[in-house]
Design a protein around this nucleic acid. Structure first.
Lengths: 110, 110
DNA sequence: CAACTATATAACTAATCGGTAATTTAATGT
DNA sequence: ACATTAAATTACCGATTAGTTATATAGTTG
């Protein structure tokens, strides 16, 4: 953890909070495959249109996504690839934890 | 982002949500220097005792912290070091963004 | 311009969450 | 057993937030 005065700490917390929402992660997971417009994402996620729009706006306002207008459609894409590194790290950590639990079980059996 | 079925996605979101709170990050920042008991952390953060206890309990329940009892005191320590890697990544990303903004300003001036 | 489609926004509701005050539990020493 | 200290827990309040419905905005086509 590099220097964290109260302000940067607040910013870091904000970033985490933005990612701490299943629907937003779902959107990011979709957009990992390429850019999509809102209705694509509505279909892919099964969420409501207003809901998707709101989450996308939030991700935009935090610099995680970018947007590109094309006719009636608005295409969203990843602007900050680092979010995937974050998810990778978390997944690893979770996997390790699960492994630890599994080991506990096998140890108990032995 | 490795495989993310709905369940793992939910877990990842949970992890992010736990980290998406300034006070909890502040506690983690303190504990980076070593283990501390609750009252130490109360003094270091300036938060209320109940508040600190609650945040610590949450971090424990998510496997991020560990605890060790010694007499009247309970010492907390980091159980999942990966949280610091996460914070590092976020800080980098934020720094890059700030740099971009700065460049925009200097470009505008030029 | 009118009808249509895609997206954004506003207003609202229910649920979640952080902080606090008060109480309880647990360990220690007299 | 009693008093003292540390930590956890409970109950509560105010604020935030995700989702939905309805409406507004913007771009397209006839």
């Amino acid at each position: 953890m590099p220097k964290l005065n109260d302000q940067t700490l607040e910013h870091v917390a904000q970033r985490f909070k933005v990612l701490g929402e299943p629907m937003r992660l779902r959107l990011l997971a979709c957009l990992q495959k390429g850019e999509y417009c809102v209705q694509d994402l509505v279909e892919l996620t099964g969420a409501g249109q207003a809901n998707v729009s709101k989450h996308l706006s939030l991700l935009i306002s935090h610099g995680i996504l970018g947007r590109r207008k094309e006719g009636l459609h608005v295409y969203y894409f990843i602007a900050d690839e680092s979010v995937y590194n974050l998810c990778d790290l978390v997944c690893e950590s979770i996997a390790n934890k699960a492994e630890g639990v599994q080991r506990l079980f096998s140890d108990a059996r032995a």
